[in-house]
Amino acid sequence: MEQIALSPYNPRLQRSGVIVYDSTLRDGEQTPGVAFTPEQKLKIAQLLDDAGVHQIEAGFPAVSENEVRTIRAIADLGLKADILGLSRVTKGDIDAAVDAGVDLVLLFVGTSDIHLRYKMKKSREDVLSMITDSLDHCRARGVKAAVSAEDTTRTDLEFLMQVYRTAEAGGAVRVGVTDTLGCATPEAISMLVSRARQEVKVPIALHLHNDYGLALANAFAGVKAGATAVTTTVNGIGERAGNVPLEQFAVGMKYLYNSDIGIDCTKMKALSDTVCEFSGLHKPRNQPLVGTNVFAHESGIHVAAILNCPMTYESLPPQAVGNERHIIMGKKTGVNYVKKRLVDMNVDATDEQATEICRRVKELGERIGRVSDDQFARIVHEVMDA
């Protein structure tokens, strides 16, 4: 693999023990209009496992009997990843998760005053009791549980810490900071994680939405503050603006922060493409790392430099994320790349002919955008036969 060339000012973050628990099959499927088939869910789960994802949130068992069967089928695949299931703080939800064969139940409960008043219609004392009762039931059913405070980032701080202490006392294996509306800044996430670490000894998890485009930055901030588990989804799909993109978090941790968390980044592009196909969601060409434009070059100045040393305009090689380099021909194509293409085609052209071919490529590119290989070959044929 070619050498990488990242900023030397990036800090080193030695956090190899960070767990990725991917929620493509649960929160990702909550993207409006998305419904994976059971077969698609099994395929995605296998791809996530092949890429080294540590935990897979396979669904919300209480949704339906079919959901339970699908999660059970994923659990029966014998994957290396732990299988997780979402659950409200009710016995029925927990029983459904246990019936689905999950390794860990992800309990969640609203904790902000807005959620307590308008959604749950419960008091703070009610919530604390529900957490304790649910953890008792999980223990009775023989399954581990984590507790996340839904709408963490709008929850009264002292009550939030009480929630975490109650969860830890009840046997939760980790507690979660949840930016349900994606309305917190990296500074806020850092503060919440730091404060939680002062209150409890169990690991802190992050579930972060992207409404303000800060999910990835918030994930890095949370990990730097001491969080050790992060929810992701492939391509960042999910409710509203989505979640932390798996590919961006894993690659960012490995290359930007020099912290390899065990995810095979070379499998990110294929995983991204599969989820796009199954979800029916369009992936922008400029999607970071896994979009088709990320390693595409057209400008004559850029292409000439890339041909000499790819590191001039690529901080890491495309194969590092399973992507490919594309040199695009169009209105910005330079004569140096035209000459290289002519050599590749075994065409012995003079400088004048190469210049004329370049002129015609630019002219066509101005009219149609991208000039295809067939169109380029026709231009070459016309000029060389003139």
Rank of each mutant, 00 (worst) to 15 (best):
38 P>S: 00
11 P>G: 02
55 Q>R: 15
29 E>A: 08
68 V>H: 11
32 P>S: 07
42 L>N: 05
13 L>M: 14
24 T>H: 09
12 R>K: 14
51 A>W: 05
53 V>E: 10
59 G>Y: 09
28 G>E: 03
13 L>F: 10
27 D>H: 05
64 S>K: 08
53 V>I: 14
34 V>H: 01
59 G>R: 08
68 V>F: 13
57 E>A: 02
17 G>K: 15
66 N>W: 03
41 K>M: 12
71 I>M: 11
9 Y>T: 09
71 I>Q: 03
50 D>W: 07
10 N>R: 07
16 S>D: 12
44 I>F: 10
14 Q>E: 13
58 A>P: 07
20 V>D: 00
35 A>P: 02
52 G>T: 02
65 E>W: 10
69 R>H: 13
55 Q>C: 13
26 R>M: 06
54 H>I: 05
55 Q>H: 13
38 P>H: 01
66 N>T: 07
31 T>F: 11
44 I>T: 06
32 P>H: 03
70 T>R: 08
26 R>K: 02
59 G>K: 09
31 T>D: 04
65 E>C: 02
10 N>D: 02
14 Q>M: 13
67 E>D: 15
17 G>W: 11
32 P>N: 03
42 L>D: 06
48 L>N: 02
63 V>T: 14
70 T>A: 15
50 D>P: 03
58 A>D: 09
49 D>Q: 01
